[in-house]
Write a protein that binds this DNA or RNA. Sequence first.
RNA 1: GGGCGCGUAGCUCAGCGGUAGAGCACUACCUCGACACGGUAGGGGUCACAGGUUCAAUCCCUGUCGCGCCCACCA
Length: 922
Amino acid sequence: MIEKTYDPADVERRMSAAWEDAQAFRAGRPERRGAKPYAIVIPPPNVTGSLHMGHALNNTLQDVLCRFWRMRGRDVLWQPGTDHAGIATQMVVERQLMERQQPSRRAMGREKFLERVWAWKAESGGAIINQLKRLGASCDWSRERFTMDESLSRAVLKVFVTLYNEGLIYKDKRLVNWDPEFLTAISDLEVQQVEVKGSQWHIRYPIEGSTESIVVATTRPETMLGDTAVAVHPHNDRLKHLIGRTAILPLVGRRIPIIGDDYADPEKGTGAVKITPAHDFNDFEVGKRHHLPMINVLSVEAKLDLDGNTAFLEDVPAPPELDETLKLHGVDRFAARRKIVERLEAGGLLVKVEQHAHMVPHGDRSGVVIEPFLTDQWYVNAKALAVRAIAAVRGGRTVFVPKNWEKTYFDWMENIQPWCISRQLWWGHQIPAWYGPDGKVFVAETEDEAVSRALAYYAETEAVTPMQGHDMALDPDSRAPFLTRDEDVLDTWFSSALWPFSTLGWPDKTPELARYYPTDALVTGFDIIFFWVARMMMMGLHFMKEVPFRTVYIHALVRDEKGAKMSKSKGNIIDPLVLIDRYGADALRFTLAAMAAQGRDIKLATSRVEGYRNFATKLWNACRFAEMNGCATLPGFGPQEVQETLNRWIGHELARAVRETTEAIEAYRFNDAANTVYRFVWNVYCDWYLELAKPVLTGPDSVAKTETQAMVAFVRDQILALLHPFMPFVTEELWSVTAEGGVARDGLLALTPWPPLSGFEDDAAEAEIGWVVDVIAAIRSVRTEMNIAPAMQIPMVLAAVAPETHERAQRWSDVIKRMAKIADISIADAPPPGAVQLLVRGDAVALPLRGVIDLAAEKARLEKEKAKAEVDINRIDARLANPDFIARAPEEVVEADREKREEAMARRTKILEALERLKQVE
RNA sequence: GGGCGCGUAGCUCAGCGGUAGAGCACUACCUCGACACGGUAGGGGUCACAGGUUCAAUCCCUGUCGCGCCCACCA
């Protein structure tokens, strides 16, 4: 029995349980072992995450694909899991420690802290998974993975060591993007450029042994303490004579050379640029070219670091002002900036200050200004790995949908920079590198291996023998003292990059890996093409020798109603869980799918969700109607063999809807698919089929009635199937409560085959029912226009119609009477005088309403119709009169125009006749 | 500075070479046993603007004006 009202929350709870009990989404179910696999790996959400609209969209689309292909018989694996999210998770736990006034991370030490994070993960890490389940995600939950699982961590180590041994991972001392808030390096991608209104200061640097000076412009005066040169362009006529001279760095007294370098653009600033190799990416390059010293004047927290900074003091002849400068030690960079400017001004060295809007790098997580900082970090030679990743997309082995994202992918890949993968965090995969006392590095998958390598190395070398007196080979615990492990962990994206194969068991040769890799589709937002997609391509191709996925479907961003990006700070976040509570998961899913047009952002209006909730209710009620009318599928019922025209017609319409929906999903046109089903269910099945079937269904028992009952049930089942990828909960519920062949169903809709694509075509049925639909629509329209009382029954006369039309009318008299409020139908040679006349597919239908309606109104209506017909005729005539049109337009188009003209002419003739008759009455 | 995308009904969006569609909102009418989260019938658009290509342009090209996003080391 179908409940009277549709309660989404109740349905969702029960259907989730039903799927879980049946393990419906298990990959490799026995009955599908012979089937072709279909695999998708989920973009793993952060363990710290909670479901936002982006997740809702992303996972709805994946679920549509998975449910669709599952119903089409494939052995579907939707691989779920979460990401350990280094910085985010560490932050969450540290904040928690602070709130509870517990010892800080550093106070408790690495080991204790990590225990704490694991405890946090066990307690609160699963929230997002439950939220995905509420959305209806049909993942194989038994295969849930976490990037720091033992087996995934093994994959990480293996990849790191292999790439290191291949020379594709290396350690380097160079400038990195340093986050002074989190005290870690971050990659280029984690840096957001933000436009900031700042100042540009012009500062005078005196020139040694002269009264001359050189003026430089800078937005970062505090870094001048680390200047080691001033550069001018070699062809700068105004300044090139200074090349080779020495400037005296104000406040410090350091003697720095004035060098010639192309980098100094004569058009910019003053034409002379201060060179601070340790604090600017460009200056770093200039410094390398000219072998300049690199003087770091900042601490990891971005405070001035001067006291005891030997590099800073080196070569300084200690001018009187140095003492004052040294007092800036430990001062924060921005405070230091102000003080330095003040001191320069006091010393008369500040030439001018200009307002200056410029882009300043910020940490995407911390939000603080990023410092270019000179440190040792680990890098991946991304350029080498990119070669095959580019080739795979060029060669079409992986395709982007929509295609234009390939350009973005190529642009980035072709200009790819070394990927900084070390992070100065604790939560993550610790880098498998150990250092000997002499700094010699040993990279190995295990500590044991590192030790034995070290032993072998030091046995051969005379250099250092730290293990004298120890018997290392026998006592593993005593090995630790002489090797120290690298403290750093890997960028979270390093492990994410392995996701398509690490989740399948790699480096072991598992059956899952063999069966599901490469995966079929990856569904994600464009914002992580670089972070994730590109890197999976590189890693997948390098380690699996095959692309990780055949198609990358890039979906849009979900924005708020006004088109603004949703963000906490703007307070415009629409919480998908709130929408699920209010309208149901099905309504939310349908909305997202219906709005997921390729290449466009989604501006989410909750009115849309409400509209689709109404749609779910409509479906619910249609199913109730079927049930109440005894509609159930019969054993051995052959839907393609039905005799009744109405039933053949709905089969015809159904097949078309199935075809269009199928093609749309296959092409990732989710919105087209959703709209097709929507229209079929509401505007065809409910509005016409059920209405037209009512007389039969409520009439006496007959062969026709039995057949119609069965067909109503059959089409309803097909609808449930078609709709299931979009609205899994209601459809599963409605499926489960309806019987099949007289007995309760034992199978799940989720595992039922997709509707057949063909076998129902019937143009004759289409012509007949189409005519009936048009008659009813035309009569209804006139009734409103003529202000005929809604309940009033009126007669209908078929005037001078072909015998087939007459027969049609007879066959459908019941529904026509019922739906158009017609009292009786008769035939006549001509329309009676004063009747309202309608044209339906060329036939004249008259409504004898003399005395009921206002003749003047009818005249006006006919005049309007006539004018419309004439406009049509004129337009077509104009076109047909154009010789170029006849000559150049395709024949079908010209032919269609001729037919349209004829049709319009006939229409006009009938209207004129009707007007004539009207006159006679007057 | 490069690149991408968008400007279509009041709102949110489809369509993208043969004279425009949906949802919501709006108007009128309808308690007819599936559904008022409903039904029926309507109103509403010079498809941002200007040129061009074409027999034909909302749809292709160029430019202009607005809006958004991504990338880039510019002092």
